[in-house]
Nucleic acid binder design. Structure first.
Length: 312
DNA sequence: AGTCCTTTGAAGTAG
DNA sequence: CTACTTCAAAGGACT
């Protein structure tokens, strides 16, 4: 598309205007040879750890295609660490996040153990879960046009579908996720707006969801950009089998998503978030990795000597 | 309130 | 087909 116009000046952020994000290089103790992970020096790195937290299996790869006895060292742990956010207890009999339509789910049925058996288990308390906000949102989602959905934006199970979010998306989600207020239900007047069907999560996103809380606990970090860098490195450090679990999960996610929203296209969500124009992808980034806003600025990394000892 | 940061992967667009 | 762009999650920082 309009290549030339979608560019931003990297220095615009890193150097000056966005100087709030001079990422540092932190070593991740979980990675070999002290792999470095850039972290923001603004991150309160030495936050008090919240101590032991319960682990909740997010993705119990019990018996599926990838149960070759290999067990991920990274136990699924996706705990909401946000000051004891209370979540309305989920009914544990909800089958899954992508409940199957009453019919026509042919091929994916055999492997649906992952689903009914809670690839995305619905914890009875406090733990974060994929799409939890959508689920927690209760009846506030509405007007989803999909035939499988009930009139109020719920699936036939009566559960609002995780991939469906109000048009304003994140903000509203965060209402549920972060504040967990009773949420006096969005204005009915806004019902004219069509909810957004989100993209299914890819393998890495699923991995991030699962591992985020663990990394946060270990590194006492909260800044997602820094966490994600660590997660990216750990992702690469995963064995093929371990990664394969997530690829398979993602594949099922996509399948289910396709079944639930046959006409949906990722393009539907294009342009919903206004992004800054970015700099043209330069081929000569000397092996630089891809970044949504150009190449990573490892050169901006602050020497590790400026980092707290505990993260080194 | 909205955007950026950061990651990878999937899918879209442009040429 | 290739190269590039956008979005998915997350939450603090920033505008």
């Amino acid at each position: 598309m309009d290549d030339g116009m979608k560019h931003q000046d990297p220095g615009m952020y890193k150097g000056s205007a966005y100087s709030g994000y001079p990422f540092l290089m932190l070593s991740d103790p979980y990675l070999p040879n002290g792999s470095m992970s850039p972290l923001s020096n603004k991150v309160p790195v030495v936050q008090p750890s919240h101590g032991v937290h319960p682990l909740t299996p997010l993705i119990p790869y019990s018996n599926d295609h990838f149960s070759h006895g290999s067990h991920s060292p990274h136990l699924p742990a996706d705990i909401n660490q946000k000051q004891g956010v209370h979540r309305p207890s989920q009914t544990s009999d909800i089958p899954g996040f992508y409940p199957l339509p009453p019919s026509g789910v042919g091929q994916i049925t055999p492997s649906m153990g992952w689903q009914s058996q809670s690839v995305y288990p619905l914890p009875s308390c406090g733990f974060r879960q994929p799409y939890s906000s959508a689920l927690s949102a209760g009846a506030s989602f509405s007007r989803f046009p999909h035939p499988l959905m009930l009139g109020s934006g719920m699936h036939t199970t009566g559960i609002p579908h995780p991939a469906i979010v109000p048009h304003s998306g994140k903000q509203e989600m965060e209402h549920y996720d972060r504040n967990m207020k009773p949420q006096p239900e969005p204005k009915r007047e806004k019902e004219a707006k069509k909810p957004t069907i989100k993209k299914p999560l890819n393998a890495f996103m699923l991995y991030m969801k699962e591992m985020r809380a663990k990394v946060i606990a270990e590194c006492t970090l909260k800044e997602s950009a820094a966490i994600n860098q660590i997660l990216g490195r750990r992702w690469h450090a995963l064995s093929r089998e371990e990664q394969a679990k997530y690829y398979e999960l993602a594949r099922k996610e996509r399948q289910l998503h396709m079944q639930l929203y046959p006409g949906w296209s990722a393009r539907d969500n294009y342009g919903k978030k206004k992004r800054r124009t970015r700099e043209k992808q330069q081929d000569s980034n000397s092996g630089g990795k891809r970044s949504a806003f150009g190449t990573y600025k490892e050169k901006d990394a602050v020497p590790a000597q400026f980092l707290p000892m505990e993260v080194l």
